[in-house]
Simulated scan of single mutants.
Amino acid sequence: MESSADASNPKDEDHRWMAVVLDNVQDAWVRQVAFRRFAGSAVLAQETVRRLTVEDCISTEPVSEIGGERRNTFMTKGQQTLFQRLYAQSGYHDFAVGYCAAGPNAFVQCEAEDAYSFSGSIDSWAAGTLFDIVKEYGQALRFGNREQDGQGAGWAAANSVFWQCTAARVDCYQPPTAQNWAFGTWAQFAGNGHWEQSNEHIKPRSLYYAQLQDRLGPP
């Protein structure tokens, strides 16, 4: 899928913003799609989405200004959504969880390069998010208090987990009445959440796939 942006204007926004938007959807898949030159999201799952899998997709060459609801490349506001084996280039919030997302939501084996801002929970009080083997090169992964950012988003993540992730920095803060955890993260660190085995390889390599095997068996 390719948006017809003006090649002479690297900040052109007079073209398609969203590639795939899902609303009032359950038990759905987005598989093996390459996205190019969109201004907003490659895949956006709205609040009414449940049991969605987005896998083996790649987003490159976004065209837009930077910031302000742009380039939230792979974003969920729903619940029971799985985003796995994704690649994003030059996004803003590449792997993002939105306002009061009920969870559980998981990003597994995802990579982002040349991002302009962090990945993680970007709006108020998303719960039950897992970032599992996510690599954010040159930017941060963040569960924390956005305070006045994001139109006053405040605490953005609760009862959420980083598992064996790599980033320039990982922020893991404990919100009131809840907790966030970081296991086996490779980064610079900030926050008063629960930290364990930082800068170490841990087992199982993937928390999500270990839980899947426990439920379905080794095959």
Score class of each variant (00 low, 15 high):
M1C: 10
M1R: 03
S3V: 01
D6M: 03
S8R: 14
S8E: 14
W17Y: 13
W17L: 08
V21Q: 08
V25R: 05
Q26K: 12
D27T: 05
F38P: 02
A45H: 03
Q46G: 11
Q46Y: 04
Q46S: 13
Q46M: 14
V49S: 08
L52Y: 04
L52Q: 01
T53L: 06
V54R: 07
E55V: 05
I58M: 13
V63L: 07
S64M: 06
S64H: 06
E65L: 04
I66D: 12
T76R: 00
G78V: 03
L86K: 00
A88Y: 04
Q89A: 14
Y92T: 03
H93T: 02
H93E: 10
A96V: 03
A96H: 01
A96M: 10
G98S: 10
C100T: 13
A102Q: 09
N105P: 02
N105Q: 07
N105D: 14
V108H: 12
Q109D: 15
A112T: 15
A112Q: 15
A112L: 05
A115F: 01
A115V: 04
A115E: 08
S117K: 12
F118C: 03
I122M: 09
D123R: 14
S124F: 14
S124T: 15
W125M: 15
A127S: 12
D132V: 10
V134H: 03
Q139Y: 07
F143K: 01
E147A: 13
D149N: 01
D149W: 14
G154F: 11
W155F: 15
A157G: 08
N159Y: 10
A168W: 06
Y173V: 06
A178D: 07
Q179E: 13
N180V: 12
F183H: 12
A187F: 01
F189C: 05
G191P: 02
H194F: 14
S198N: 15
N199V: 09
I202R: 05
I202L: 14
L207A: 13
L207R: 08
L207W: 09
Y209M: 09
Y209T: 05
Y209K: 05
A210M: 01
L212W: 12
Q213M: 13
R215Q: 13
L216D: 02
P219R: 09
